[in-house]
């Protein structure tokens, strides 16, 4: 049975695209057949985060308008046999697509893919309505900041109003050093405020910047963020994985350095 998942947040810049790229790649690594759809028409970004920007021929709007067949627009990620990207159009705007057209598109993709991930644009207008139209469940991304949490709350309300079956929260860019000082809201604080199920917490990890520079999602690598994203993938599949300890002592590198320190 295939599942259509929308990654949304309300506020921009909290990590929707990075999350879509990493969760999608992670699910492909776990042998699921995955297609990522960039629904941010006019501001496409998922292609660069995935490192597939040079391979775009057709895009989402071309498919919807019938300028090409769906298969022609799908870019196969050569690094993973099960991973595909449907890029967004850069020269059009959100009104180029309707929610009905999106629903039709996702239904067509259901026949072939296990997971269809939709990278939602920021905001609550047409782009958001298009992205959520065909989705079975939502991953709401936020950061531990008042503005992002407020927008996440609004989005959760709108998802409920649109009868989204399931909404789970991802808290991105947590800095445990700041949480300990009392200068950043903790995972528990955010969950308490938003009263929604949490599916993962991602530490603020500079490896994310490096991986985006290189166009290679870091899910599953020996980095804090890479592990946290892989855990989310397992939870998406319905497995029960405890939340990662974000204190920085369970990454390969810190284990390695702590062994060195001990032997000194």
């Amino acid at each position: 049975m295939s599942e259509v998942i929308v990654i949304t947040s309300g506020k921009g810049g909290v990590g929707k695209t990075t999350t879509t790229a990493n969760v999608g790649t992670g699910l492909a690594k776990l042998d699921k057949k995955v297609v990522l759809i960039d629904t941010d028409i006019g501001l496409r970004n998922l292609d660069v985060v995935m490192g597939l920007e040079n391979r775009i021929v057709y895009n989402l709007v071309d498919v919807v308008e019938g300028n090409c067949r769906l298969k022609q627009a799908l870019i196969k990620d050569k690094r993973y046999p099960n991973l595909y990207l449907l890029p967004s159009a850069q020269t059009r705007d959100k009104t180029a697509v309707t929610p009905e057209q999106m629903r039709k598109l996702t239904d067509e993709l259901r026949e072939e893919y296990d997971y269809i991930l939709l990278d939602c644009p920021a905001g609550i207008e047409q782009g958001f309505k298009n992205a959520i139209a065909g989705a079975d469940r939502a991953l709401v991304v936020t950061t531990p900041e008042v503005s992002a949490i407020r927008d996440a709350d609004r989005i959760i309300g709108l998802l409920e109003a649109n009868e989204m079956k399931k909404s789970d929260l991802i808290i991105n860019r947590i800095r445990m050093d700041m949480v300990k000082r009392g200068d950043m809201m903790s995972i528990a604080d955010v969950v308490d405020i938003l009263a929604v199920n949490i599916i993962g917490a991602i530490p603020d990890d500079e490896n994310i910047v490096i991986s985006t520079n290189q166009g290679e999602p870091l899910v599953g690598t020996n980095t804090m963020a890479g592990q946290a994203y892989m855990n989310i993938c397992h939870r998406v599949l319905g497995e029960n994985v405890p939340l990662l300890n974000l204190d920085g002592n369970n990454s390969f590198w810190s284990k390695f350095t702590s062994i060195l320190k001990r032997t000194k």
């Binding site: 531990p144 008042v146 949490i149 949480v179 009392g182 200068d183 950043m184 809201m185 903790s186 405020i193």
Partner: peptide
Amino acid sequence: SSDVAKDRL
């Protein structure tokens, strides 16, 4: 400051 943020939110 995180308590302040929580209360405001």
